[in-house]
Design a binder for these strands. Structure first.
Lengths: 147, 147
DNA sequence: CCGTATCCATTCCGATACTG
DNA sequence: CAGTATCGGAATGGATACGG
């Protein structure tokens, strides 16, 4: 039996996981957000076999998260670039990063941190805020259909 | 060959995906954040077979994201509750939810939305902010080791 | 009600070899 | 450099039956 598709689920979390909920996709998006564009860059940095990388890249293109374009630097090859839709995954990656750093200490006494490029200060922890600016915890929110 | 473990990776995103990057985990956490605690509730709502649910629950307990405790309502059974560590995944789920709602429109003209429980207003879009409050885009951040 | 035990199908990953 | 083809192994998901 195949895994149920959740693309038609009412919950946007489920639908999102249906698209980027696999193992490699978010790591590829992470590297593209860092500016990587070439197949070989991604392959080396992710340490993934080429056929897997190919498959994942194709899937991300099909989802309109990446595009494959002629390289801007004039080289004969093509390059993978994030679409706007892909770039909007930034908060997802930041949330994952912050949770990992705070909750998966591990052995590393000085784990990597997302910082402001200019001032080299850590980015603020993400907060969930109501329309009026109040910080909300999980219990103060509900998933509902408006209207 | 088995999938590479990224638990020792330097990048906190990779380490996080190693823990909750599978198909069901975040959906279970989502339901627990909504207040679900019972096996049967989860099984019905997720529409997952019992053995799979058992496997995932055990894994989440092993990761200290869930605990299994005697039910508070006096029933003979036990209940699954999020640990603080698990509860801190809230921003991850909100980020996934917002991305899905904004970028995976689908057929539904009125998709589900996360709202403030009290006023029924949509939660603000997550913003990534620097230490001084400036909103940061992906290009204005770097992942680095401090110190 | 809350699982566990089998068993099977599918999907996914990875190594290797090969191509333009 | 940038893939494709093939193959095998492992993890995952699911149906079903069974047990405390």
């Amino acid at each position: 039996m195949r895994r149920k598709s959740l693309s038609g689920a009412p919950c946007p979390i489920a639908r999102t996981l249906d698209v980027i909920g696999d193992w490699w996709s978010l790591l590829i998006v992470r590297d593209c957000l860092k500016g990587m564009r070439r197949f070989s860059e991604l392959q080396k940095n992710l340490d993934v076999s080429k056929n897997i990388l190919t498959r994942r890249l194709r899937a991300l293109i099909a989802q309109d998260i990446l595009t494959l374009q002629p390289a801007a630097d004039g080289s004969a090859y093509q390059e993978y670039r994030l679409t706007d839709k892909g770039r909007r995954l930034f908060p997802v990656l930041v949330a994952l990063s912050q949770w990992g750093r705070e909750n998966l200490a591990g052995i590393d006494p000085n784990p990597m941190t997302l910082v402001d490029r200019e001032y080299r200060q850590p980015v603020r922890p993400i907060e969930i805020r109501a329309h009026d600016g109040r910080v909300l915890g999980p219990g103060e929110t509900v998933m509902t259909r408006l209207g």
